[in-house]
């Protein structure tokens, strides 16, 4: 199983998945945090943090998922009160209207949480809502292989959520 590790995030990729873990260049007072993207299709080189430029090329059997880290100032806020990365999603968690870009046939889910003292959101998209019972177990296998290390001491404060 291929394994990715960068910026305190480790991902064991199930068969058929590819991915990247990166930080964008910060600008001004903005501090970039880790972004981990995973897909069962070829990720374009220039893709938005939440799949802009990628979800439009998804097929019915494709999956896109992103783990997006927020700044440490967000730790302890109500939005990130849930502790722990959701490891087991259900088909009912995916809704056609939970999409950052509404595309016919697709559905998505989004969760905010704190893992290892770091605030994240998990956003996942299914290529076909009708096939969610088949696709969701594949996402769960991906989530089972994700590990987040605690934030390094002295990490500069990033822009808080909101």
């Amino acid at each position: 199983m291929p394994t990715l590790f960068a910026h305190g995030i480790e991902a064991g990729l199930p068969s058929g998945f590819e991915g990247r873990i990166f930080k964008r260049q910060g600008s001004g007072v903005e501090v970039a945090n880790a972004v981990a993207q995973f897909s069962t299709f070829a990720l374009p080189d220039d893709v938005g943090d939440f799949g802009g430029g990628a979800v439009t090329s998804m097929g019915n059997d494709d999956i896109f998922a992103v783990l997006f880290e927020y700044g440490p100032d967000s730790v302890g806020t109500r939005l990130f009160a849930h502790q722990g990365l959701p490891r087991t999603l259900s088909a009912d968690d995916f809704k056609p209207y939970v999409l950052r870009r509404g595309l016919t046939g697709q559905s998505g889910t989004q969760w905010f949480f704190t893992e290892s003292g770091r605030p994240f959101t998990l956003y996942a998209v299914l290529g076909s809502h009708a096939r969610r019972s088949i696709l969701v177990p594949r996402i769960n296998r991906l989530l089972a292989g994700l590990t987040v290390e605690p934030a390094a001491v002295g990490t500069p404060a990033g822009a808080p959520w909101n």
């Binding site: 394994t3 990715l4 991902a11 991915g19 990247r20 930080k23």
Partner: peptide
């Protein structure tokens, strides 16, 4: 097989060329 490693800037990257339908 899927290729996994790092980028020159220290990010992590995995490419699955056998998927997606396109030529890699």
């Amino acid at each position: 097989p899927t290729l996994a490693g790092v980028t020159p800037t220290g990010d992590a990257l995995a490419v699955a060329p056998a998927r997606g339908g396109a030529l890699t």
